[in-house]
Protein backbone atom coordinates (compact mmCIF):
# COMPACT_ATOMS: atom_id res chain seq x y z
CA UNK A 1 0.00 0.00 0.00
CA UNK A 2 1.49 3.33 -1.04
CA UNK A 3 1.69 6.42 1.13
CA UNK A 4 -1.16 8.04 -0.84
CA UNK A 5 -3.44 5.05 -0.35
CA UNK A 6 -2.45 4.93 3.29
CA UNK A 7 -3.33 8.63 3.65
CA UNK A 8 -6.68 8.22 1.86
CA UNK A 9 -7.64 5.33 4.12
CA UNK A 10 -6.74 7.23 7.25
CA UNK A 11 -8.45 10.37 5.88
CA UNK A 12 -11.73 8.54 5.33
CA UNK A 13 -11.68 7.28 8.90
CA UNK A 14 -10.72 10.73 10.17
CA UNK A 15 -13.52 12.33 8.14
CA UNK A 16 -16.09 10.11 9.86
CA UNK A 17 -14.46 10.57 13.26
CA UNK A 18 -14.34 14.36 13.01
CA UNK A 19 -18.00 14.57 11.94
CA UNK A 20 -19.09 12.44 14.91
CA UNK A 21 -16.75 14.32 17.23
CA UNK A 22 -18.12 17.67 16.06
CA UNK A 23 -21.59 16.54 17.05
CA UNK A 24 -20.32 15.33 20.42
CA UNK A 25 -18.73 18.75 20.97
CA UNK A 26 -22.06 20.46 20.15
CA UNK A 27 -21.13 22.14 16.89
CA UNK A 28 -24.05 20.68 14.97
CA UNK A 29 -26.81 18.17 15.30
CA UNK A 30 -26.93 14.79 13.60
CA UNK A 31 -30.54 14.18 14.56
CA UNK A 32 -31.88 14.43 11.03
CA UNK A 33 -30.94 11.48 8.81
CA UNK A 34 -30.47 13.38 5.55
CA UNK A 35 -28.28 16.13 6.99
CA UNK A 36 -26.32 13.58 9.06
CA UNK A 37 -25.55 11.46 5.99
CA UNK A 38 -24.63 14.62 4.09
CA UNK A 39 -22.19 15.61 6.84
CA UNK A 40 -20.65 12.13 6.74
CA UNK A 41 -20.27 12.11 2.96
CA UNK A 42 -18.63 15.53 2.99
CA UNK A 43 -16.34 14.42 5.82
CA UNK A 44 -15.34 11.24 3.99
CA UNK A 45 -14.63 13.03 0.70
CA UNK A 46 -12.75 15.95 2.25
CA UNK A 47 -10.81 13.68 4.62
CA UNK A 48 -9.88 11.28 1.84
CA UNK A 49 -8.70 14.02 -0.52
CA UNK A 50 -6.84 16.09 2.06
CA UNK A 51 -5.10 13.23 3.83
CA UNK A 52 -4.43 11.46 0.52
CA UNK A 53 -2.56 14.57 -0.59
CA UNK A 54 -0.76 14.74 2.74
CA UNK A 55 0.20 11.08 2.44
CA UNK A 56 1.47 11.59 -1.09
CA UNK A 57 3.54 14.59 -0.02
CA UNK A 58 4.96 12.74 2.95
CA UNK A 59 5.79 9.76 0.73
CA UNK A 60 7.68 11.92 -1.75
CA UNK A 61 9.47 13.68 1.06
CA UNK A 62 10.49 10.40 2.61
CA UNK A 63 11.76 9.04 -0.71
CA UNK A 64 13.69 12.24 -1.35
CA UNK A 65 15.41 11.86 2.01
CA UNK A 66 15.81 8.09 1.80
CA UNK A 67 16.28 7.14 -1.88
CA UNK A 68 15.79 3.43 -2.52
CA UNK A 69 19.06 1.61 -2.96
CA UNK A 70 19.45 -0.07 -6.37
CA UNK A 71 21.20 -3.42 -6.49
Amino acid sequence: MSATTHGVGAGVVLGIVFVLLGQQLSYYSLSDLVSAVLYLVVGIVVGGVVFGAIGMALGRRYLAKHPPSTP
Partner: peptide, 15 residues
Protein backbone atom coordinates in the same frame (compact mmCIF):
# COMPACT_ATOMS: atom_id res chain seq x y z
CA UNK B 1 -5.11 7.73 12.51
CA UNK B 2 -3.22 11.04 12.59
CA UNK B 3 -0.17 9.19 13.81
CA UNK B 4 -0.64 6.67 11.00
CA UNK B 5 -0.76 9.52 8.47
CA UNK B 6 2.36 11.09 9.98
CA UNK B 7 4.16 7.80 9.43
CA UNK B 8 2.69 7.18 5.97
CA UNK B 9 5.80 8.45 4.22
CA UNK B 10 7.54 5.20 5.01
CA UNK B 11 4.87 3.34 3.07
CA UNK B 12 6.42 4.65 -0.15
CA UNK B 13 9.56 2.72 0.55
CA UNK B 14 7.60 -0.39 1.48
CA UNK B 15 5.13 -0.33 -1.41
Amino acid sequence: ELYAVARSGRQSAIA
